[in-house]
Design a protein around this nucleic acid. Structure first.
Lengths: 337, 337
DNA sequence: TTGTATGCGTTATCAC
DNA sequence: GTGATAACGCATACAA
């Protein structure tokens, strides 16, 4: 491993000069600097990140907390999409991405402990149980931090705009002439609450009141429970003309159930999803859905975090809402009124 | 940030003793050791990973190279599944996972450069272009390394057993009475070559020769191209009775095309996928497919790499083949002979 | 413009 | 059993 010392010997200058030249300091001779850089490159010099971090107290690495509540883990496209863009943005700005865990070596440590141990410059909470004391410890710590899809006081949050997203989707469905709209929602989280409230409110604005029986609970990313809810809805005396699913993937459960009833989408019943994953684009009929802008969310999160890291004094935490967009698809039928 | 020095002052012992006690060295007094550990925990001491890495030349972190050839990135369940299990296994053994990129700060550097800069103890190549000079540079470097689904000489490889996987799937289809089997394959890679050869060989063993027209090229994870190939196959004078797709997701393209022709799966035509992603389990009829054991692959890769890292002298590179299993599903019809 | 000296936090060697 | 001390590679304040 070639070090500054090797270069300094080869160039017959001091280590300090080499360090300065390589870091582009102004107070070093033009000619000297060129010579040093040339030798450094010839020798294949690479700085030692550990030494640099030790000295500067900056690791240039970002910890990502991704705890999987549902067992789906990164297999949910929304999250893998976020991770992907997070990574690209951070790397382009010179930061590496490391996962935060709660074990290091044989003994466990808290998330916050891990973050301190690795000297992460900042942390992104991509997915976690926001009631978990360990997560709260991390949020309460002094480290620069960005949270996704959840808002903590005095902390930067990047959230998918679920309120306007669901509003737009509902507006579209209503505009197609639907009045009897059922809503299957996922587990009770703040995201769910927002979507549900937005749905009901938007309906109300159009003078549509949704009967209790049209609101069903299922689980995110779980076709089975959505299938069950669909069966219940299809068994009602007064069936809905449109069903909104917790997410695109869950709709598959509904799709199967609808077929089993000998019904046809969108001829006999209309459906809509949420997320805009690849699957929704390749199904036929194409699924009407609201695409969350995972790429923008990940990118923004990284950008905000780095802004916070690099301007700790002037940075002001904020909540950034990232808008998605409606994908009309073909699964919501225009009803003649 | 509390350091060894703080503890040593508080305990009125030297830093050396503190270090030893905390690292469980034997040559330190029972009572002293207990006192030190107590104070360390009270003060919330955490070792500084950078300092430790600098001194020991071991970073306890693993670099993962994941370059996305297809644009799908981590959104492919096979890869996100591997990453997930990789992460769990590595973390449980005290190693953190960091992504390898080719930029650090403003200037770019090679993958190998990045790995050296961060002093990764080892590297896992999860997905990459194996002809890329940068990847070859990494493979040729001295760092412990494990490659997934590709074999380099003198390097550990963990591969999904595509030969026996496709064999098993084909055997099953033949056992159901099919003789006219079409095969749509993905881009030309070693994985593709193995699957294709295995398919043709297994058919031949049963005295079945596959006409050229039954072998179609499409792209992995791309329903559109598989849909096109399906259309061609359905347009043949002598249609296949079963179509094998490049992967489960691509089958969606075929599914749409089959429906468009007014055909029914598996009544009119049988189909099979490959991968065993969640989607294949929730479709109705359930997709017949071969499930790759992504979890085992990721886990094995991490385990082998760490074995290599921790026993550099005695470790012998090997190719580990991970078997998956057939999922019968309901999409291949039993033909009466 | 260049060099000297110091210290970041840790581990390891070797005295005591 | 314990404690000085050096060294890992680097950046920087300060001296020359």
């Amino acid at each position: 491993m070639v070090t500054l010392k090797d270069i300094s010997e080869s160039c017959k200058v001091s280590v300090a000069t080499v360090s300065k030249a390589l870091n582009g300091q102004s107070d070093v001779g033009e000619e000297t600097s060129r010579r040093i850089r040339k030798v450094a490159s010839e020798l294949g010099y690479l700085p030692n990140a550990s030494a640099r971090a030790l000295k500067t107290n900056r690791s240039h690495s970002i910890g990502v907390l991704f705890v999987d509540k549902t067992g789906t883990g990164l297999r949910h496209e929304y999250f893998s999409g976020i991770l992907d863009s997070l990574k690209v943005e951070a790397e382009s700005r010179g930061y590496d991405i490391t996962f935060i865990s709660n074990s290091i070596g044989r003994n466990t440590m808290s998330y916050a402990g891990h973050a301190r141990y690795r000297r992460f410059d900042g942390v992104i909470i991509a997915s976690a149980d926001f009631k978990d004391p360990q997560v709260l410890e991390l949020v309460d710590s002094a480290i620069p931090l960005v949270v996704l899809d959840y808002v903590f006081d005095s902390r930067t949050a990047v959230v998918s705009d679920n309120v306007s997203g669901m509003e737009e989707l509902t507006e579209y469905i209503i505009a197609q002439g639907h009045r009897r709209i059922a809503f299957i929602h996922g587990e009770d989280t703040t995201v769910t609450q927002k979507r549900l409230a937005s749905f009901i409110k938007t309906c109300a604005m159009h003078g549509i009141s949704i009967p209790d029986g049209f609101i069903r609970q299922a689980l995110y990313h779980d076709p089975k429970s959505s299938g069950l809810a669909t069966r219940e809805l299809l068994g009602l005396a007064e069936k809905p003309t449109c069903i909104i699913y917790p997410d695109d993937f869950s709709y598959i459960g509904g799709m199967n159930e609808i077929e089993k009833h000998g019904l046809n989408v969108p001829g006999d019943i209309s459906v809509a999803g949420y997320d805009g994953i690849l699957l929704s684009k390749v199904l036929r009929p194409r699924l009407t859905t609201f695409e969350q802008n995972a790429e923008e969310i990940g990118k923004t999160a990284a950008a905000k975090l780095i802004e916070n890291i690099e301007n700790p004094k002037t940075y002001i935490p904020e909540t950034v809402s990232v808008k998605g967009h409606l994908i009309e698809g073909e699964s919501v039928k225009a009803l003649s009124l």
